[in-house]
Each structure stands twice: as C-alpha cells, then as structure tokens.
Amino acid sequence: MTTTAASSVAAGRCDLGHLDALESEAVHIFREVAGEFENPVLLFSGGKDSLLMLHLAVKAFTPGSVPFGLLHVDTGHNFPEVLDFRDRTAEKHGLELHVASVQEYIDSGVLTERADGTRNPLQTLPLTEKIAAGKFDAVFGGGRRDEEKARAKERIFSLRDEFSQWDPRRQRPELWNLYNGRHAPGEHVRVFPLSNFTELDVWQYIARERVALPSIYYAHEREVFHRGGMWLAPGDWGGPREGERVERRRVRYRTVGDMSCTGAVDSDATTVEQVITEIAASRLTERGATRADDKLSEAAMEDRKREGYF
C-alpha cells in the first residue's frame, strides 16, 4: 500500500485510488491463498504479468519471504532474453523455479511437433503433469479479463478437476471478495490476482512501482518477417518459410510467449511512459493484436482452458 493510501486508511477514509484498489485486491488474494492452501505455486515466465504478480506477492508477505515457488512451462521456443530475466529474478528472490519442458515431451515421443511449428498448444500436458507431480493445490496465473473473452468470464478462483480441466458450469459466485477454495483430492484451483487489471493498468502500475522488465517490451532493432498479419522472429521453430523475407525493424512486444506465435508491433516506445501513451491509443487487445495461437479458432482459448491450459 502506498504512503497516501496508508494515510487515508489511518484517517478512517476509504478513498483508495484506482491502482491502490487493484493492488489491495491482489494482495488480499495472495494472502487468502497462502492461508487456505497447503502448496501454492506461481506461474512465472519472466513476462510482464508474471513479474507484476511476483512484485505483488513480495508486497503481500514483506517483511517475510514469499511462501511458494515458481513454475514455468518452457516450450523450447521462448525468447532467450526473457528466459535469462526469469532465471535472474528467481535467483534474486531466492525462490525455487520448477520448469516443465515441452522439448523433453517431444524427445520422449509423448508429444508430436505440430506442422505449423507452434508449441503453445503443446503446453497443456507438461503443465498439468507438473502440477500433479508437485501436488500443487493452488496455481497463480497472470490472466486478465481484458485479454480475451474466455478469460473475461472466468472467476478469480477457478476450480479445476482431477484432469486439470475447466468446466464453466462449476464456477462459484464471488461476492464481497469472498473466495471459495474448497476442492476434492486431486483437484486444484487456478487463481488470477490480476483479473481486474487492464493492460493499461499493468503498465501504469509498473511505472509507479518501477518494476524492471526484459528489454523485449521496449522498442529495439530486431530481425522479423511477416506472416499472418504479424511480425514474427525467425528461429529454429520453423520461420521464415520460402518466400518470407527477413527484415530489420524497430519493434517491441506487447505480450511474450512462444516465438512461433507471438508477434511484435512496430514501435518507437523506449520508456514506460511512451509505452503507456501507445497502449492508450490502441484499439486492439495485446492478445488480439499479437497472439496467433488465439486465432486458431473462434473459441481457441476456451477450448484450451477446458483441456487444462490457462
């Protein structure tokens, strides 16, 4: 809580600013989970939303340490600079980092490489098996309701069955910030502390709190090629194809996932303030503008959530 917000509370007022209210809600969620569940874990890729979650978790438990570890599903096609940032951050906070490797599942023959080269749809099995093996009963995710319509209708506490699958009909009411974490043996709960943040809120909070991010989120010169209306980074994952020309452009990334499905946007925004101005003028959500995996079908995200993906 900021000094201004703390002063307001001490004075008996309840006039929290917008970002203070979002922060307070997220801190409350982290503490609720820590008090109610035995073995939580935080999904952590080194991207902006997971970094923001970790920042809020640190706030929630200061001066103590964060009472849970981190979990990342590494597709083998992640951006190297983001993975480096992930590792440095986990080490900085002294947190255990659990990694589920899609490449290991492909090498063992359990999963088969897709013809289009994208591995995002292949993350579900490594994720769900890692959750089961680690006996994690609550898994924090950075999903936000403004990102995509399937995420917009999901609760903050999202019950998953013994197969990690999501059934919209089993969602529970969440009135007055009361959350129901009850689950049967083998089930777990996915928890979304950033549900009510928007992309603009995220960046305004990052600016206020001076949260460090990988350089990929700011404008930089990079080799890219055009496919499906997006600028993709070349790599071993299968790009570019014949006829796709690589060129050097000044770009940045609004969201960071698998290189095969995450597009860059043309940008001159090199500071947080410039990024905020750019986002405020945008008419497309970050996933709608830059994530090819959400364009596979009209209900691509919801289909994957039902199977166990976030």
Rank of each mutant, 00 (worst) to 15 (best):
A5T: 00
S8P: 08
V9A: 12
H18V: 15
I29C: 13
A34L: 03
N39P: 08
P40H: 03
F44Q: 00
S45Y: 00
G46C: 03
G46T: 03
D49M: 13
L51P: 09
M53A: 12
H55W: 15
V58E: 10
T62S: 15
F68A: 09
H72G: 12
H77V: 10
H77Q: 15
F79M: 07
F79L: 09
R86M: 14
A90W: 11
K92N: 08
H93M: 02
H93P: 05
L95C: 11
Q103Y: 00
T112N: 12
E129C: 06
K130D: 04
K135N: 15
K135F: 10
A138N: 06
R145D: 15
D146E: 01
I156K: 06
F157L: 06
L159T: 14
D161V: 02
D161S: 04
S164P: 08
W166K: 03
W166S: 04
R170D: 07
P173H: 06
E174H: 01
L175S: 05
W176Q: 10
L178M: 10
P185G: 12
P185V: 13
G186K: 04
H188R: 07
V189W: 07
R190F: 14
F192V: 06
P193D: 07
L194C: 01
F197V: 05
E199L: 11
W203Y: 04
V211D: 00
A212D: 15
I216Y: 07
Y217I: 06
E221K: 11
R222I: 05
M230T: 09
M230F: 09
W231V: 01
P240W: 01
G243R: 02
V246E: 07
R248N: 12
R248T: 12
Y253V: 03
R254T: 06
S260A: 15
G263C: 10
V265R: 06
D266W: 05
D268Y: 08
A269K: 09
T270Q: 14
V272I: 10
T277S: 15
A280P: 05
A292I: 00
E302K: 09
R304S: 00
R306G: 10
R306H: 10
E307F: 00
